[in-house]
């Protein structure tokens, strides 16, 4: 193993400073007493208090969580089905089109996805609101879920499933009792990914929502267009911390599972 050169240390330090300093500054200045966001005037948590009293933000946050929860759950079901089709279903007519439809939404500019879905909803005469945002988010999130799940499906041993079928399981039972437990971590990461994508989305939600539903990113957007505000700094801090805690917890759980799995495998080898 070579020692870290000064060049690598410098590039890592500068790189991570670049990635994290802006968010760190945001967090520090959310505790600023002054309304003037760029001048430090002492420590205060008053903007968090302001935020808690701002019912418009709270309502928007509730709508956002609701949309994210429903759409990510739907997307997980549909995306897992799509992944099973991609990996296990073999050849069928329209397979190329199917995989095209899975990959294309991920690279599509959001403005196009949003515009096209809005025009669909209008030509069907649908009322726009929570329901239409859920449909839109489910559609693009299911593609991400299916990519995450299919990478796990590809890598595990198919003979386990075949064994279950030989031993008299129906295909549904084999999936529920054998396949699903094995791909569960990937399904959960897919759900988490879909959930955060939905929480985060501004452009598609702006196109597909109506006057009855405003999501948090839409609310933040209309506020930050007018400039930097301490209340948004406070809100951003909360969102950054929630995500950071979530990601770190998930990776710790994942790490523990990997360690346990390795131990079990080692034990199984010893027995054999």
């Amino acid at each position: 193993m070579r020692r870290m050169t000064w060049f690598n240390v410098t590039s890592l330090t500068l790189g991570f400073a670049f990635l994290y300093l802006p968010m760190l500054i945001l967090i520090i200045f959310s505790f600023n007493e002054s309304k003037l966001v760029t001048v430090w005037a002492g420590f205060s948590t008053k903007w968090y208090g302001e935020l808690m009293r701002n019912t418009a933000f709270l309502d928007a946050a509730w709508v956002t969580v609701k949309v994210a929860f429903i759409s990510s759950s739907l997307a997980t079901i549909l995306g897992t089905m799509a992944a099973v089709v991609m990996v296990r279903a073999g050849r069928f007519r329209g397979r190329t089109m199917f995989s095209g439809m899975i990959y294309a939404p991920m690279v599509m500019p959001e403005v196009i996805t949003g515009l096209s879905l809005l025009l669909l909803f209008i030509s069907l005469g649908m009322d726009r609101g929570v329901f239409t945002i859920v449909l839109a988010h489910t559609t693009f999130a299911m593609c991400y879920v299916s990519v995450v799940v299919s990478s796990r499906l590809v890598s595990f041993d198919q003979s386990l499933e075949e064994a279950a079928l030989d031993l008299g399981c129906s295909p549904v039972q084999a999936f529920r009792l054998v396949t699903l437990p094995i791909i569960a971590p990937a399904v959960i990461s897919g759900w988490l990914l879909a959930f955060t994508l939905s929480l985060d989305d501004l452009v598609i939600a702006s196109f597909t929502s109506g006057p009855s539903a405003t999501t948090l990113p839409m609310k933040i957007w209309s506020s930050v267009r007018l400039g930097v505000s301490p209340e948004i700094n406070a809100l951003s801090t909360i969102m950054i911390l929630v995500v950071a805690i979530g990601v770190i917890t998930a990776s710790l759980i994942n790490k523990r599972n990997v360690v346990r799995q390795r131990r079990e495998e080692a034990a199984a080898e010893k027995l054999a």
Binding site: P22, L26, T38, P217, I220, I232, V243
Partner: peptide, 12 residues
């Protein structure tokens, strides 16, 4: 973390 917030952080 939110894309919007990351872009916003540069405004200040």
């Amino acid at each position: 973390t939110s894309f919007l917030i990351r872009v916003y952080s540069w405004m200040g």
